[in-house]
Design a protein around this nucleic acid. Structure first.
Lengths: 237, 237
DNA sequence: GCAAAAGTGTTACGAATACACCCATGA
DNA sequence: TCATGGGTGTATTCGTAACACTTTTGC
């Protein structure tokens, strides 16, 4: 049986690029790779790859993030389609950018070494190839939008975390300082944080209590009709 | 000179689909076309087309909206990349959806007839082909997001409009009823509406004052650092 | 004069902000 | 004992929501 096709149209390579965020208890970081191939060899870039036949966009983006981190079921969201006709000097491609939030300590070190990848604090990024800088800016903006309304911050933290750590994360995302008392009140008042009976030790003398995020409870709260209802950050742009 | 190309990768048709919003002083409407070609002939669909070589994504989306409406420099924004591998039965394509806001009375009637296009109120849409229904839902959500923060509503109105008309528009976008006094206070307090000395006649006995939107003033207010600062609607999701 | 839509102010509530001191512990 | 970071409450401000009557004018 002959496959039908559209006539008289161009076809293009479709790339997926991943903006991979991690948080090291201090700063937000991005995982970048050093290209060992032309063009722009030796320069830094986002992890990317090409869409395959019969592969959904989301699946392709996942595959690409997994190939660098070893992690599956990572939180990812499509960001934007980048398609300036001259964005890639090799061939006209379009790229759909996805951002991913991972727990920075979970990823596969071997893979990262194999790709000559490296974590960079988001305020100290090297020069990036093509339009990747633009992608990163878009991802930062989207993360700020998203983290204000939905509990995506927890994707960047280990299962157990302290409130000072959580605050540090939000401060990194929003590049601002937050009032400790107001921050704690807001987070705890939502009722989705569960205090454990374990204290962090080693970092501070007193030690901070570990908390976990109650995903089930959050789902119940937000499921009925309203998309989210909770405010993890005030919604000023 | 031989053109470099990527090796061993698939190439795909890249479609652009347009969700074209219009407002007829009563309800939000979408402009749909009746397909006169297979597959799904005689069914309703969004206006679409394929990306051409050396054409930016944004330009292609504009071209497609212009081809149906005759309008140029229309307000458009990229929405999302749709890429389920089986979304199009003819051939595996990906589609970048854009939404457009137009003044419903400006468009070219001839073109619309030629494409057997028709305006539908957004709450009475016919069944759509492929994943176009999903695109429409995404566009509605994005419009709600956008209209709360930026003055995009005015793109859907003629240059002169009354406050009751503006309120009707926001009520249509948010599918809710708004308090007249609160709405007027919010809009007028932003200082970007200019009252004309002209009254609407014909519709109501008393007649409502026509206003215009002061784009320049808005730009000055929002330019420095902050993205927008104004709140056209409370930012609840 | 009356129907129909346009126009106008005030109060109440809740969320966001600003702000300063005590607590626990390791060194 | 002291230095370091963890933890706690209250007052104020501001934006949002609720709410009802008067005005204009064509018929």
């Amino acid at each position: 049986m002959k496959k039908r096709m559209y006539d008289n149209i161009q076809r293009f390579p479709v790339a997926l690029d991943g903006i991979i965020f991690g948080f090291d208890r201090q700063a937000l970081n991005l995982l970048l790779i050093k290209r060992d191939f032309e063009p722009e060899k030796e320069k830094w870039s986002l992890m990317g790859g090409f869409l395959r036949e019969a592969e959904n966009l989301d699946d392709a983006a996942s595959r690409i993030v997994t190939s660098l981190t070893g992690l599956k079921n990572v939180y990812m969201e499509q960001l934007y389609g980048f398609g300036r006709h001259d964005r890639d000097p090799v061939e006209r491609t379009i790229s759909i950018a996805y951002y991913a939030l991972i727990n920075i300590h979970d990823h596969d070190e071997d893979l990262v070494r194999r790709y000559s990848a490296q974590w960079f604090p988001i305020d100290e990024l090297p020069e990036l190839i093509f339009d990747h800088q633009e992608m990163v800016e878009a991802a930062k903006a989207r993360l700020r939008y998203k983290a204000a309304r939905q509990p995506v911050g927890f994707e960047l933290l280990p299962g157990k975390f302290t409130l000072p750590e959580l605050q540090q994360l939000y401060e990194a995302i929003y590049e601002t300082e937050l009032d400790k008392r107001n921050f704690r009140r807001r987070m705890l008042s939502m009722g989705v944080l569960v205090k454990t009976d374990e204290k962090q030790k080693g970092f501070s003398k007193r030690g901070a209590w570990y908390y976990t995020f109650d995903k089930e409870k959050y789902k119940k709260m937000s499921s009925p009709v309203n998309g989210s209802a909770l405010a993890f950050m005030p919604a000023r742009e």
